Computed example of a mutant assay.
Amino acid sequence: MVSGLSARDIGHRVVVRHRLPGGQLTDVLGVLQSIDSATLVVRHADSTLHPIRWEDVAAAKPIPPLPLRPVDVEQLFLTTALGRPAVETSYVGQWLLRASSGWTGRANSLLPAGDPGMSLSDALKHAEDFYAERGLPALALVRLNSPEANQLQEHGWKDARPWQADVLVMHTSLDLVNGAPEYEVTVTPQPDAAWYETAFDGPVPAPAPAVMEGAPHAAFASVSLDRRVVAVGRGSMTGHWLGMDAVRVDPQYRRRGLATAVLQGLTRWAGPLGGRRSYLEVVEDNTPAMTTYTNLGYAEAYRYRYLAGPGHQPES
């Protein structure tokens, strides 16, 4: 066989030149999925598998990892909102107001992106009234050091969670994550009771199903061991972006690679649907999650915090 590949290259990007049935040569580029004495299998970015017989291989070699393309931060900022929509939404110009009976900051906060269509003071007053009418604090999700964050702070909005570390939005390309999971991952279009029981430590908040299942194209992954669901996660497609959240592993089953398997399962679901890039969110001081995501090739796109309107006390 003519090859510079071996088992140690599994999981890395390779290029394989091989002969088609008609005799012509073609190249396949992707991640080496498996290799044995008879065949090798290359996984393309869209998760398609290409099994190739060694007798047809003309040349094969490992290639450097594909560098992450620069991310359009403003576009991704809006994409994250579409991936997990709130129960109730309203607009002030291009600003997005979200409310979901108080469950999660993201689903109950202003997203100040674009032109509010009126003076900043009037737009902020409109936002404060929107949340006051619903018995909710006026919160805004802002990218750190963005013009919008600076403008809101100049109008008296302050850090709503000074005790909390920054939230990082991280991104990567799908071909760095869509490896074969070590566990069987079930992906369904709707979550069942077992999924929710694992996703939440205690009763499921009343607004959660509407928020979790509200995206136009969402999927719910789970891993079962010992006859019960022990790891879950949620994915949603927005254009070519796969957003992943609600990744949780039963405490008794942590440090076994289950979170990685859930992410890989969702990524393999998204690839054939046109997914090319992935994002997720993590609090900076969540060391285990940060380690998992970094090992899968995720890199920081931006950070955000919540600001509270004037008169609102910081959350404790």
Rank of each mutant, 00 (worst) to 15 (best):
V57E: 02
A107Y: 12
A45Y: 09
R98Y: 00
F130M: 01
G83Q: 01
L110R: 12
D115Y: 07
L82W: 12
G83M: 04
A123Y: 00
H50W: 10
S101R: 13
P112G: 01
Q75E: 13
T89M: 12
R84N: 14
Q75Y: 01
D129E: 14
T48P: 11
I52E: 11
T79F: 01
L111V: 09
D122A: 14
L111A: 10
T80C: 09
P67Q: 10
W95C: 03
G105M: 01
L76T: 11
I52W: 11
K61S: 12
R69H: 12
P67Y: 10
Y131F: 11
L97D: 10
P116A: 08
R84C: 15
D56W: 06
R69E: 15
T48C: 14
R69S: 15
S119W: 00
I52K: 12
G102T: 00
G102M: 03
R98Q: 14
L124F: 03
F130R: 04
N108T: 03
V42P: 02
P85E: 03
T79I: 12
L97C: 07
L66A: 15
I52N: 08
V73Y: 03
G114Y: 02
W54M: 13
L110N: 04
V57C: 03
P67R: 05
W103V: 00
T48S: 15
D115N: 14
P70Y: 02
L96W: 02
S109V: 08
D122Q: 14
H50A: 11
F77N: 12
F77Q: 15
G114N: 05
S101G: 08
